[in-house]
Amino acid sequence: MKTFPHLVACEHCDSVYERTPLTPGQLARCERCDAILYRASRLDVDRWLALTIAAAIVFVMANVCPVIYISFKGMHNEATLWASAAALAHGPAAPIAVPTAMSIIIVPFLQISLLGWVLLYARFGKRAPGFERAMRMLVALRPWSMVEVCLLGILVAVIKLSGFLQVAPGAGIWATALLMILLTVIANRDIHWLWEMTEPARSAQKAQA
């Protein structure tokens, strides 16, 4: 089958354009429907990988440290992200615990580890084992990552509870906030160019020229 890597089709209206190189920070928009076609990456692979590792560290902190401490009439309690998802598993609404755990813990974990894996190899211009599957999964996972919603949820919970008991933020809440920012930077970007960067034929073409 013939392929046309120099072309790009708008995901939203199927208009076809020729890819033109962009300067960092620029983005290409579809003339017909105004959707973003692709953007130039501000990050090179090294920086991207560094931020992914940072996200991994922050992810561990967000999951290990409690996000909120409360005290009520001399009693104390705390909750982590896991405990929050697990709290839904008790009682009649139990099945909702699964998508909740997915959206705030499992999906971000998969995004970070898959990106780290792919980028580690991309650094050397290679395709990691399972590259195709990892790239497809990264695209499919993106809409289900809800760390930002989780953070807003924690804040609403803080305000809700502060009415009748004492509430203090834990280290986990700061880690979650950082994770939200880092995930936005590393995972909400155009990953298409990793395909071109790691093209197996590319090194051969260069040798010929």
Partner: peptide, 13 residues
């Protein structure tokens, strides 16, 4: 859903 999860995890006295 997330608000309910967090408050249910916390308030268990």
């Amino acid at each position: 859903v997330l608000v309910v999860a967090v408050v249910a995890a916390l308030v268990k006295f």
